[in-house]
Amino acid sequence: MENGQSSASNGYHAGSTLERMLRAGHFAVTGEIGPPQSADASEIRHKAALLKGCCDAVNITDNQTAIVRMSSIGAGTLVVQEGLEPVIQMTCRDRNRLAIQADLLGASALGMNNLLCLSGDHQRFGNHPTAKNVFDIDSLQLVKMVSDMRDKKIFQCGEDIKGSEPRYFVGAASAPFADPIDFRPYRLAKKVAAGADFIQTQLVYDVPAFAKFMDKVRELGLHKKTYILAGVGPLKSPGMARYMKKNVPGILVPDELIDRMTAAGAAWADKKPADMTKEEKSARMAAWKAEGIQICIELIKELRAIEGVAGVHVMAIEWESAVKPIVEGAGLFPRPQV
């Protein structure tokens, strides 16, 4: 599509595959690609090839964890060339309202039409902790700004966009289990009111807790106003599961899943890592990964049964090869054509 003009007349906000998939009532699948810390295009092409056909669109992270990487829009251009649809991630950490709008005009002109609006991880966590951050606007104001660029044809300052407006299918994130937990559905409501067409959630491992969150979301009627994609990701090892449970805010990992991951490596449980051969280590890793994929498949099936869940966002960063078996295992392959 040249740009959004055609979609304005056909009833779609942007007319992206992701939007059409959701509007058609299909259970959507999005994936995620973390761009390299280099100018290496082949890495993006390789990852895109692994995800092509099993995801309706793939998020391209924007300096994730505040580490400098190839830009989301640059990597997104490569993804488009590979025949895959990107969801550009845009954070408020590194750009002010001028830079964000300029980049979004550019990305739209390059054919990108899905956007995920984020505040951005604080630079304290990244590889340039001495940097100045921006945070001119926040993620919610970003959602509103981009929606207004599309629907009102105005820049944030109120001036008209003369000529083609950027037309994005606008997304926002939700962290259902972060504190203050009771406020989370209301913050989601604010994002929807600001114009979020779709929502991708933080990783869900605790389905009953998520179901409780969704109860409130439905009570507020939000599932009728936006498409909610539940975040899932395969566990790689019991250590990773324990680390996330302990250290990552807003991620709940039930002990039962940690136990399952531990049990998957039970055959090697009485061996110290130092005494294990390379072959034993890779066999244990394969057993863990197989269980991680199996758990992810089960999570997707359970999440799909929750009313108001319109799709899943599969986050398998640096393990993109896991996505296809997960999507297949969950009965979501091949993807419908829209």
Binding site: R124, S139, D179
Partner: peptide, 21 residues
């Protein structure tokens, strides 16, 4: 707020403290 968010909280709030510290 570490990110000066006007429409917070972000996802990094845990047990009353900010994820940066």
């Amino acid at each position: 707020c570490s990110k000066s968010l006007l429409n917070g909280p972000c996802g990094g709030s845990e047990n009353g403290h900010c994820e940066i510290d």
